[in-house]
């Protein structure tokens, strides 16, 4: 039973991280109908930036909590800046091009960023300092659920709520929803569509960076390759929930997190990554709209 609880909580943590990344996919897809292949790389850059900043700060002798907070903050800023720039370079010029072109451009961007980090930094795994404090009150449960996991879960919940409020209640959120519905119409009623798209990329990248910092602290190491697999899995989560739908992405992430956790716990860990892919193929074949997505027929 305890093993089950451990796997359940492990899945919950995994799911939270996937959710933070999947949000970016789903929001961008909702607005410009593009799979942002470079999103996983944005997440990886977030983690790298955090590592670099924490290393520099720890040389200055700051205390760990301050390092963690500052590093996360800088990582979020940088990832957002990267997200913004990526959109301007690789996607904006292709707004009216065929979908295939934008998709290929996105693949190119992913490859570029991945190799950029590889060349500018290193191909080795780097140890990532865990600056998240151990809470006293968590001690009795630490063998199944660590303080880090608690922080991950809490952060994800807070981010989800804030994001929900952003989309529901603010002006820009309304503009986002309008643009997702019908871009041309949104433009006609005076919404600055370019700005909305930029904001979407920035917000999506920021949550991905948070995901990057948290998972790196949890696992304790990073390399340039983490973006690819995490990106694919978060994408699976987004599709699972119904791409374009924010609650769907969250739900999909938890479902995927649990599936992976239980499958690796009870079946085999060699094929950990295969489960996500098989899941993806099955969903797309049997329910392409996802759990919460609505199927839309093309207008003829």
């Amino acid at each position: 039973m305890e093993y089950f609880v451990e796997l359940f909580l492990g899945g919950l943590t995994r799911g939270s991280i996937y959710a933070l990344i999947a949000l970016g996919y789903t929001m961008v897809y909702g607005i410009i109908q593009l799979i942002n292949f470079a999103h996983g790389e944005i997440y990886m850059i977030g983690a790298f930036t955090a590592l670099i900043i924490s290393s520099v700060l720890s040389l200055l002798g700051l205390n760990t909590i301050a390092i963690f907070v500052i590093a996360s903050f800088v990582a979020v800023i940088y990832s957002s800046a990267y997200g913004f720039t990526v959109e301007k370079i690789a996607y904006k010029p292709l707004r009216h091009a065929p979908r295939l072109s934008a998709l290929i451009s996105a693949i190119g961007m992913s490859m570029f960023l991945y190799n950029y980090v590889l060349l500018a930094q290193t191909s080795d795994f780097l140890p990532f300092p865990n600056n998240i404090p151990e809470f006293k009150f968590m001690e009795p449960y630490s063998h199944i659920f660590s303080s880090t996991e608690l922080v991950i879960l809490t952060t994800t919940t807070v981010v989800m709520i804030l994001l929900g409020l952003l989309i529901k209640c603010t002006r820009i959120g309304k503009a986002m929803r309008a643009t997702a519905q019908d871009r041309d119409m949104a433009m006609l009623v005076g919404i600055d569509v370019n700005r909305v798209i930029s904001v979407t990329f920035v917000v999506g990248s920021a949550t991905a960076a948070l995901g990057g910092v948290l998972i790196a602290s949890h696992i304790g190491q990073i390399n340039y390759f983490i973006g690819f697999i995490a990106g694919i899995k978060a994408f699976v989560a987004a599709v699972l929930g119904g791409i374009g739908s924010v609650p769907g992405a969250v739900l999909g992430s938890f479902v995927l997190g649990w599936t992976e956790s239980f499958a690796t716990g009870y079946v085999s860990s060699d094929y950990e990554d295969v489960f996500a892919f098989i899941f993806l193929v099955l969903i797309l074949i049997f329910r392409p709209a996802g759990i919460l997505g609505r199927s839309t027929a093309e207008k003829v």
Binding site: L94, I104, I107, G108, M111, F112, L113
Partner: peptide
Amino acid sequence: GAVLIIMMV
């Protein structure tokens, strides 16, 4: 990677 982007754009 850069080639893919530049070609598409």
